[in-house]
């Protein structure tokens, strides 16, 4: 049978291991989740920036169409040309931010932004040429203007399609990161529940066994010692338990046997003494003459 000390050592070891496992688990997965959350936020920010750029790109196309629709109306034409230039400026600023040295964008993103910038430049160059030609009367009417910008418009598709694709990518990335965070939280929850259940089960078993293992044999032994102290030395001291208590019980049993043997010998001696006293001539009753 295990000693009380071993039982307590095992119990505390199990609790320490469970606590350490919980700490390690939470530490590892929370760190990983924190990194994933940062990446999710970054992907969201990138997605938002790209969405704003894509919107400005679509605005350019709309202002270009309005410009061509009102190709014969100098005032409206000038208004939409101004709007176009305004959106163009915003787009240029946005793309410049993507290429900033300490930005959240990767090298691949920066290379894509470079290609988009070239696409925007080609489109702007084409639009400006058509704008000048329309203003100077070299191109007349919507259809002619539309035809003249066709080539530049095709080059701008690189920007429009690229940003749309990249927005999808960033959204998907953010979704993947969020899913991983969710998966991590699920793992933490699952393992914490399993560890807690195991710790509760072990704790429950130890709670039931350890106090009984300590108190039971001690109270049995106490009863035996009380018996001996009252003179009832006939009952052997038998205590089941850990080595600490059984060792003590064996010592008490030795004492009981020794005490019993000594008492027997004392009574025997007393009996012999009484016998001798009775047989001494001086104590014999005198015969009556």
């Amino acid at each position: 049978m295990l000693s009380v000390r071993s039982k307590l050592t095992i119990a505390f070891s199990i609790f320490f291991i469970a606590l350490f496992a919980q700490f390690a688990l939470v530490y590892y997965f929370s760190n990983e989740s924190a990194a994933l959350i940062t990446q999710t936020i970054k992907a969201h920010e990138q997605g938002n920036t790209l969405t704003r750029l894509a919107i400005e790109g679509q605005k350019l196309r709309r202002y270009e169409k309005e410009f061509f629709i009102y190709a014969d109306n100098p005032d409206r034409r000038a208004k939409y040309s101004g709007e176009w230039n305004n959106s163009y400026g915003k787009l240029k600023d946005g793309l410049a931010l993507l290429n900033a040295p300490r930005s959240i964008w990767s090298q691949a993103d920066k290379e894509r932004a470079q290609a988009w910038n070239e696409s925007l430049n080609a489109y702007a160059s084409g639009f400006n040429k058509v704008d000048v030609a329309v203003n100077n009367g070299f191109i007349n009417g919507t259809l002619a203007a539309n035809k003249a910008i066709q080539d530049a418009k095709n080059k701008f598709r690189v920007f429009l399609k690229g940003t749309a694709t990249e927005i999808d990518n960033k959204v998907n990335q953010a979704r993947d990161f969020s899913s991983q965070v969710e998966a991590n939280l699920a793992i933490i929850q699952k393992y914490l529940m399993a560890l807690s259940a195991a710790a509760l089960a072990v704790g429950g078993v130890l709670l039931l066994t350890i106090p009984r293992a300590i108190a039971g044999p001690i109270s049995e032994l106490t009863e035996s010692v009380i018996d001996i102290s009252k003179g009832n030395i006939g009952r052997p001291v038998t205590v089941r338990g850990g080595p600490e208590v059984t060792g003590l019980a064996e010592s008490v049993e030795r004492l009981r046997i020794a005490l019993k043997g000594l008492m027997l010998r004392m009574s025997k001696l007393q009996e012999e003494r009484n016998q001798r006293t009775a047989n001494t001539p001086s104590n014999k009753p005198k015969e009556v003459a």
Binding site: R254, L255, I257, A258, G261, L262, R265
Partner: peptide, 8 residues
């Protein structure tokens, strides 16, 4: 087994 009784 018998403690102090052994000598006796």
């Amino acid at each position: 087994r018998v403690g102090i009784l052994s000598e006796v």
